[in-house]
Design a protein around this nucleic acid. Sequence first.
DNA 1: TTCGATTTGTTCGTATGTATT
DNA 2: TAATACATACGAACAAATCGA
Lengths: 264, 264
Amino acid sequence: MGVNPTNPVHGLKQLATSGPGPLYRQARLELQRLVESGRYAPGDALPSESVVAAALGVSIGTLRKAVDELVHEHVLVRRQGKGTFVALLNDDRFLFQFFHVEPRDDFGEGGLREREDPQVECVAFVRGRADEAEAAALRIRPGDGVVRVDNRLSLSGRPVVHDRIVVAAQTFKGLSEKRFTERPGTIYNLYQTDHGITVLRARERARATAAGRETARILGVAIGRPVLEVHRVALTFGDKPVEYRVSTINTANHDYVSLLSKRA
Amino acid sequence: MGVNPTNPVHGLKQLATSGPGPLYRQARLELQRLVESGRYAPGDALPSESVVAAALGVSIGTLRKAVDELVHEHVLVRRQGKGTFVALLNDDRFLFQFFHVEPRDDFGEGGLREREDPQVECVAFVRGRADEAEAAALRIRPGDGVVRVDNRLSLSGRPVVHDRIVVAAQTFKGLSEKRFTERPGTIYNLYQTDHGITVLRARERARATAAGRETARILGVAIGRPVLEVHRVALTFGDKPVEYRVSTINTANHDYVSLLSKRA
DNA sequence: TTCGATTTGTTCGTATGTATT
DNA sequence: TAATACATACGAACAAATCGA
């Protein structure tokens, strides 16, 4: 037979030896393509490294370098003795990866404190048409259908954050208030299990503003009080925006926390 | 001769084969130790990979894995054909690594715009004694000597940020207003060249607050206007705090920007 | 409990390609 | 052109974790 262009068992194709860029990067893109296409869903185990390497026609070392990169980006997870899996992103680790509000504490404990689980309350769930800002953020057209969800997050029983979440109705077909409020895990977990959408990262822009009427009501603060407004766009593969969220935070007793630079 | 415990030429010691953890991690710590100690200063070239590998008594592949990790953390930089260098952290790339203020733009360009160089103005440079908050942040004792510097940062000629920088006098001996204001590069570059301190990362906490008298004066806003207050602790090796900085930002026309999750 | 099969983790060595000087 | 340095690719051997017979 010689060279088999595609392997129907795994959906992997033999890599050309003269493709663009290094071989390990082609292997990486090939694996990424499989995950993005849904051929391997979050939680699935990939075939063993030796099998994948053979299917792609590369050495085991080259395949490992490709997997290394995907592990670093949280697309894959390796477990010694068990296998390599498509990442799930729903552990506590990832809940807090995207939740950045903490009780005020001026660096006394160096930021290493156990974090509290926020209590979530859905105060509104409506369908509508995207305005200019929402369309720009989600890269859809103004007037396209969207779903808007308003949540109130409380810590220690006191309301701290008002989340206004906007997603394209097109992308999230079948999203219902019932499914949304009764989801077992996090919101990003719901995106994944119900709509096959994996949130990999997010861009955020923060600004101080005066509390408006609705925010004042939801958070229980006086109108005009300084509040922190965080605009977030959540991104999936290829930096495609999938969620636009405006979080309004009462920072009277809490801080918005971020860690700059890399490192594990 | 056999095994030579330390090599006086490079300051590298042969690694024990039965040390704690994998060999490549021991090699990494050994390299990190050399950089932290100042034996190799920022900008210096390390000996070639084959030489370092031989000095440590490990294979070249194992050494490369150790260097990979340090490159990922921005401690080292590799340049094909030239060598491996201790990272400098003063390029534009790293200026913006720690400067997160951008003109307002609701995700229209997706955050990929050329950023403007802020114009810095030193409005105060005084010595004093650490208060409780400063001492906790810098992990020194209240009453220890500190240097406080107030800067005003302007974008497009308009004041946007008021920085109050606090450092321990003990750590920054010989820091003068003249050196500070006449420095050629960034502040973190000055820390590095004049005091041998490399800022690797930082922790930040943001909150919305009402502009006080001094802030209002410096930023040219009305007293009581909502402004963004960012408390930053800059860290060097071993997460040792070296700078405490409170940035007060007028977010009327600018945002504080952050990118969550990993990825290059 | 023990053992063996499977899978990832670590270490080694070699050969060749590409960038720099 | 030649020497040097990092980058890529290959593959072998053994260690460590996991799981089920």
